[in-house]
Design a protein around this nucleic acid. Structure first.
Lengths: 137, 137
DNA sequence: TTAAGTGCAAATTATTTGCAGTAAG
DNA sequence: CTTACTGCAAATAATTTGCACTTAA
């Protein structure tokens, strides 16, 4: 089946050994081809609910390994919690302040015309744009 | 002296009682008229180094009180840490990835031409722009 | 075989909370 | 007086780490 190969390739691209745990998590992240936003807890919950035995510590370690390997990127929106995004290009996010939900915003609909000039000795790493929204009553 | 009155007014504007601790922290935050970016720890350290006895718990509580009162705003740049900014308008920040330092970026030099249209049922709360930079070697 | 990866439990870090005491209006 | 504020210490939440065991190459 090509689905499994997809995950194998994905891990290979990051130079990571395809262990049972990593394959399980990779599958949850990219299995259906859609981009995902997960926290360690939510991914742990998701894998547990599918009967996959992966410890929480390993979920943390694995997410960081994926991150270091350039397979996912970390998104910071709330103090005290990390989200990881399977989409690797620089794009804006919507953040629902009431539910804590994070979602992609269409990158092509954002246009930054002018960016402040960087302080001396600085090189640009990336520009994070978080559009905070709340539910209209 | 007008400096003290400045802090008194500031607290009053937020409807907060001018206690010794709050005045001390307010002074550290807005005493010299410049905008500041502090974490609870850094503000605690600053007050301790000036011989002000304010407990860490009170620093946390006070920063949140200031935040709720609309006197400072929280800025999220790193997981597991909160920064508070004395500047209240919506403006971009520079974040030094290597040192964890946060600074204001000139708002007038940022121009967002087009913003993604909000999801259905969402109302805009604010747009956070963090320009991540690193030291050039 | 052997270095990388995993799981558990204990350790850390940042933050919050309960509650008895203190101070502002 | 009386209600808000403070400090401590204990509680919590998210994450990391040490180390013996397991597994992919």
């Amino acid at each position: 089946m090509k689905a499994k190969n997809l995950c194998l390739d994905w891990l290979d691209r990051g130079g990571l050994r395809p262990t049972r745990q990593r394959l399980a998590l990779a599958w949850l992240l990219i299995g259906d081809g859609r981009d995902r936003h997960v926290s360690a807890e939510s991914l742990f919950a998701a894998s547990a609910s599918r009967g996959q035995k992966v410890s929480l510590a390993t979920v943390y370690n694995t997410l960081h390994a994926f991150c270091d390997a350039g397979l996912v990127q970390e998104v910071v929106v709330e103090g005290g919690k990390s989200y990881f995004d399977t989409r690797m290009d620089n794009h804006p996010h919507f953040f629902w302040e009431d539910t804590g939900e994070l979602m992609d915003a269409p990158a092509e609909q954002l246009e930054i015309k002018k960016l402040p000039r960087l302080p001396h000795g600085a090189s640009l790493s990336r520009v994070d744009v978080v559009i905070r929204v709340k539910r209209t009553l």
